[in-house]
């Protein structure tokens, strides 16, 4: 088990290097820092001096990979690749193009992101599993057929519609909660209710339908027939036998995204004005702040790999058949 975890952790290293090289290529090889600077300064009437000044200010004036002018080890370290990409490995994200410390921003902004993501996830999981269990209990009846159709309809509606419609209905017409904004401490709750509720409703369609499929797959297995042959009631069979088996894929599916919750939701946060990492990313994309985007790509990758590892571990906890070696 421990050997397995160590091996998986070691396996993450080449992946992170790969991701790092890929983003480095995207940002510095496909486009030269020169072009980036011109984009930021507004193209046409920018002088070469202004471009140079911008590059120097943001640390883009160094050579890409190899600096022949520096001495010793600095030939390798005094480069864009080292300062902008390699430093990410020790979670040193450096400064954004607008001069703020990215690491500090991330630490500050992850809490509002979690405040939305965690309740949405838990409530959604509970609601979807309950609804799916209900549909599975009433399988092949009109309730089940209607429920599945409703799920497909809910799935076909754009997430933007849920947000805009919800904001208009609850925030503007009914004036129950503020449309957007955020506050510290307990006051934040009133800003969180709407995004969480909308997040949960948005997930019902696909979630319930998927869980229902999982339940039905389990119900068709032989051990369920054995359980029925023991004279157990349908409820007992569903809760004690089917649910426990179906929970394995459900839980492990949740575990893989747990670390990514830190990253927040791009759309929700920007619509509701929540100062989390999602809106941070969106702002960076819209301001074309490459340093932040690079930092978030790296962070996202690390969290995803962590999620994969946690998934494997949670499998061994949830499923007695699996032993990691």
């Amino acid at each position: 088990m421990i050997a397995y975890i160590i091996r998986r952790a070691l396996y993450a290293i080449p992946i992170l290097i790969g991701v790092n090289l890929l983003t480095f290529m995207l940002f510095f090889v496909v486009n030269s820092p020169e072009e980036v600077a011109r984009l930021h300064l507004g193209d046409k009437y920018t002088t070469q001096e202004q471009v140079e000044a911008w590059k120097q200010e943001h640390g883009y004036d160094k050579p890409l990979l190899y600096n022949p002018e520096a001495g010793g080890l600095e030939q390798l370290t005094d480069t864009i690749f080292y300062t902008k990409s390699v430093r990410l490995f020790v979670f040193d994200f450096g400064n954004s193009d607008s001069g703020r410390n990215i690491g500090h921003d991330i630490r500050q902004r992850m809490w509002p992101s979690l405040a939305i993501a965690v309740p949405s996830l838990l409530l959604g999981l509970l609601l979807n599993a309950t609804l799916a269990l209900m549909l599975a209990f009433f399988r092949a009846t009109y309730l089940d057929v209607g429920g599945v159709v409703l799920c497909v309809v809910l799935m076909s509606i754009s997430s933007l519609f849920y947000i805009i419609g919800g904001q208009y209905l609850v925030g503007k017409l009914l004036q129950l909660v503020p449309i957007s904004g955020y506050d510290t401490g307990f006051e934040a709750v009133k800003f969180l209710i709407l995004p969480v509720v909308i997040g949960v409703i948005y997930g019902i369609g696909s979630g319930t339908r998927w869980y229902r499929t999982l339940f039905l797959e389990e119900i068709s297995k032989d051990y369920v027939r054995t359980a029925r042959a023991k004279g157990l009631s349908e409820q007992w069979v569903l809760f004690r036998h089917v649910l426990r088996n179906a929970l394995i894929p459900i839980l492990t599916g949740v575990v893989v995204i747990l670390p990514l919750l830190f990253m927040g939701s791009l759309i929700t946060e920007s619509f509701f004005g929540i100062p989390g990492l999602g809106s941070y990313t969106i702002d960076a994309i819209q301001r074309q702040d490459f340093s932040i985007v690079r930092a978030m790509v790296f962070l996202g990758t690390v969290l995803y790999i962590l999620g994969l590892l946690l998934t494997d571990i949670s499998y061994t906890l949830a499923d007695p058949r699996i032993r990691l070696r």
């Binding site: 032989d222 051990y223 054995t226 088996n245 394995i248 499923d319 058949r321």
Partner: peptide
């Protein structure tokens, strides 16, 4: 039943 591998609940 015939298939003892499938007929017991694995968890």
């Amino acid at each position: 039943f015939q298939e003892p591998m499938m007929s017991l609940n694995p968890v």
